[in-house]
Nucleic acid binder design. Structure first.
Lengths: 260, 260
DNA sequence: CAATCAAATAACCAGGTGGTTACTTAGCCG
DNA sequence: CGGCTAAGTAACCACCTGGTTATTTGATTG
């Protein structure tokens, strides 16, 4: 009896043919004898195919539920190659995780929040974070899986911490600027704030299936998702408004505009 | 080679001896022949032992990573009994989930928020939610696992939805009271708000291992946890403050609540 | 053009998987 | 007390698991 696995909706197009259409075009591929081995060797493409397949498999089934056999099949490669390139299941998972983190932090940096007006910068960061999770559900799932294992893999990573300090620095500077001009309350911890920004979206998406079920309401509809994005912005900016009794208003630009 | 499993810290005391101390006391247990079968039959205790063991196993390893052999071992019962009482792995998981939900909703109801002043009631709900997750990490883990499977088990549950409507009703009434007396902004959707309250704590705890790693900061210390609790209260109550320019203050109680 | 080494393959391994078959035994009820 | 059912046990099953062994083959390089 096959082990239960989470549902896979589309016949997932992640399994790449080992050869591109271009390359195969110049030869008689179909009619001839059975091509036992791939005609061309391409370590880079093989590596990429394994990583993509692994990301899909791990995020779909969790670490424990994922099967290296299935990864190899998805990638269209021999299982032995997976061990050749990545050593074992755990090391493969770590590489997938590291890539996922690098991707989001790079996209974040591209926002160039330092050049924007604080409220606008914050709004963009919040919406970016929400939309990133929305567009990359595999990222959400991978993090959940890794936390089930108490970050055992990630903790072995070398450069993970350096990857994240720029984010904290940016946020810190943003909060300082906002507080200086009186549009943000002061004394906000950037790490706590980031966890709030992330959590308001992450939890919604990560738990959308149970939440939809218990509240009897489709939380994945286009409208519901758009509403949630707005909601998160409102919560964060609403929280960041300075308290009614102004702590220390800056003499010049200190108009407490609660725009939006 | 044994399959990788998430770490288990203490030699988990969840495995109950099949017989209570009282019962065993009245007999010569130790010296005699090898007691092949339990001297007493107790379906209720067996059922309970299986459920407790299953909750521990599922939350520690996820659904896919959990092993029914391990559940039986933890519970100190023969695996066949597990199938006798619960049918199969999936049905067992569903019962565990239903129990977990019933527990939190019952505890919530016991708060009697209807009798409290709105701001105080909200503060208590927020802190209760945070502390519940904190004290029952297995609940957090179970929900994550169930969402990996797109709530396939929970969706088959009959009475799950009825279990949650009182929560929404309570929150709705709370928001109406608060808006009526001008301490909360109006037009807040109770479901969105609850997801925010839950998410601010759930995400922190669910992802505490990766977050601690990437930010290089122990987010599980007593102090950090206390700070987070305060933070969540601040974010929610900060958000709920009415906007600076009062929208339309109701002279009496006739607040045009745009509920939903 | 032979040597070399990485890329790739197929077949295999011990042990774990969810689930079952065949059986024994305790306790209740007529 | 006899019989029946539910509680309980041990051994087993086919299949899947992560990982390996032994081998072939493509491409580069001296």
């Amino acid at each position: 009896m096959p082990p239960l696995r989470p549902p896979v909706e589309p016949p997932n197009a992640t399994r790449l043919p080992h050869r591109s259409a271009e390359e195969a075009a110049g030869e008689q591929t179909g009619a001839g004898g059975p091509p036992r081995t791939a005609a061309t060797r391409d370590p880079e493409r093989t590596r990429r195919a394994i990583l993509d397949a692994a990301a899909a498999e791990f995020s779909a089934n969790g670490f424990g539920g994922a099967s290296v056999n299935a990864v190899a099949e998805r990638a269209g490669i021999n299982k032995r190659m997976l061990y050749h390139y990545f050593g074992n299941k755990e090391d493969l998972f770590l590489v997938v995780l590291e890539e996922a983190y690098a991707d989001i932090r790079n996209a974040e940096r591209a926002l160039s929040l330092g050049n924007l007006e604080p409220v606008e910068a914050m709004r963009r960061l919040v919406l970016f974070t929400w939309r990133y999770y929305l567009e990359k559900p595999s990222f959400v799932s991978l993090l959940n899986t890794e936390n089930l294992y108490k970050a055992a893999h990630l903790r072995r990573s070398q450069n993970i911490r350096a990857l994240h300090s720029p984010l904290v620095d940016t946020l810190e500077e943003l909060l300082r600027r906002g507080a200086g001009q009186g549009t943000f309350r002061s004394g906000v911890d950037p790490v706590q704030l980031y966890i709030s920004i992330a959590g308001l979206g992450f939890f919604y998406l990560s738990n959308v299936h149970t939440l939809s079920t218990i509240f009897g309401r489709d939380l994945q509809s286009k409208q519901a998702l758009a509403e949630r994005g707005e909601q998160i912005v409102e919560v964060i900016l609403g929280y960041l408004r300075p308290p009614a009794a102004p702590q220390q208003a800056a003499p010049d630009t200190a108009v407490p505009d609660t725009k939006d």
